[in-house]
Design a protein around this nucleic acid. Sequence first.
RNA 1: GGAGAGAUGGCCGAGCUGGUCUAAGGCGCACGCCUGCUAAGCGUGUGUACCCCCUAAAGGGGUACCGAGGGUUCAAAUCCCUCUCUCUCCGCCA
Length: 426
Amino acid sequence: MLDIRFIRENLDLIEKMLSQRQMTFDLSAFKSLDEKRRLLIKRTEDLRAERNSLSQTIGKKKKENSAELEIEQIKQRVNEISEEIKTLETELSDIENEHRQLILSIPNMPHNSVPIGKSSEDNVVVRTYGEPKKFPFEPKPHWELGEKLDIIDFQRAGKLTGARFSILKGHGAKLERAIINFMLDLHTSKHGYIEMLPPFIVNKESMTGTGQLPKFAEDLFKLENWDYYLIPTAEVPVTNYFRDEILPEEKLPIYFTAYTPCFRAEAGSYGKDTKGLIRQHQFDKVELVKFVHPEKSYDELEKLTQDAERVLQELEIPYRVVVLCTGDLGFSSAKTYDIEVYLPSYNGYKEISSCSNFEDFQARRMNIKFRPKGSNKTEYIHTLNGSGLAVGRTLAAILENYQNEDGSITVPKALRKYMGGIEIIN
RNA sequence: GGAGAGAUGGCCGAGCUGGUCUAAGGCGCACGCCUGCUAAGCGUGUGUACCCCCUAAAGGGGUACCGAGGGUUCAAAUCCCUCUCUCUCCGCCA
């Protein structure tokens, strides 16, 4: 959410931003609605002020034992005002609702270092790590490797649930667990994050706080008969942890990491990545979340991205980092780096982590502030998050990058102690 | 699931037989004074959101907010209803 006054005073900037994000938005509707709203507020508030002062007068007159008739006349007048207020209030509440929905559906302003572009094709590669391995044989995609080794079962998952679900079995399940533990240990012991295991179900307020609602309801799984949703990412419960709180400045920055399954309906993704583990309705992810001082948030974004990259470095898997252009940038984000892992089955790179600085966009929605030293005023903090990493895609990347000619998988050195010393899956 | 108690500003905490509540008091914080230093003391100021006026800046006025939403009333932190959450006890349960 952007500041209302900022929107009002910078409509031309907003318009430019929206077109850079490839979005259409009726700003003139906002303008007239905003003016109407302010006019109505003024009128109702003036009437309320009159009612309040008349009511006080009645209290005083009663104490002074004034004439009943006089008091009755004032009551009569107040009743008339109240009627008028009631009419205006219904009108106003409709307008307030519409106004709020409009503001909540305006995306964040991109940082000025974000390249301008139309789509993911205009994203800019920032750095590349490692060289894609040259296989002396034809490498297989992870879904073939996984099924042959009987460590991933897509068929029966379809029976149990439906499309875009999978079952990990035996060493596949163990590898998933190993990856999760490896990532959590790395971030807690080397990067200073505090581990959290949050609820996997949250309410509407939390979804609104991080920006999934009201705009992206169709991407979420909602529980029947409850106003609760399955989380699409740990970002939602972890970032909302401090909703409606004022944090002491000396506590900043605060780093959290959390493993959770993630549930995504992804209404708009039919036909994309239909094979394998890449796009599932349920997948595991280790998330990184930061609450930081506004002046430090861009330094923190660089550090957070490096923390996520470190996972792939330790696993010795090639990747590259791209900065998303305005047309590909997420709704709430001011700047995002994607980490893309090398996948032989794609003959290229695939997103495995998305690291974003939301500046005060989420903090304003969630009302998370801090009190700067030497000031009585509060300010919004900045929030960031990034995957550290998507576990399913990491497993896929390991299978594909560590495959041998006979279809067996060499376990990356960093994971062996989490795999009970197993060096080869076959 | 049953019975009871509670939710008030950054924090603690009074008010809860409706009308100077314009939410006491304390702590914390900020500024100033005082004191060789420190501690203590004294004074002043300190919530959020929105709207209006004024503006270079400062400032001034108003409305709403005492867990959330309704209701009664000229007037609600205070009375009534519904809901949420927390705590205590009982029941059930991995």
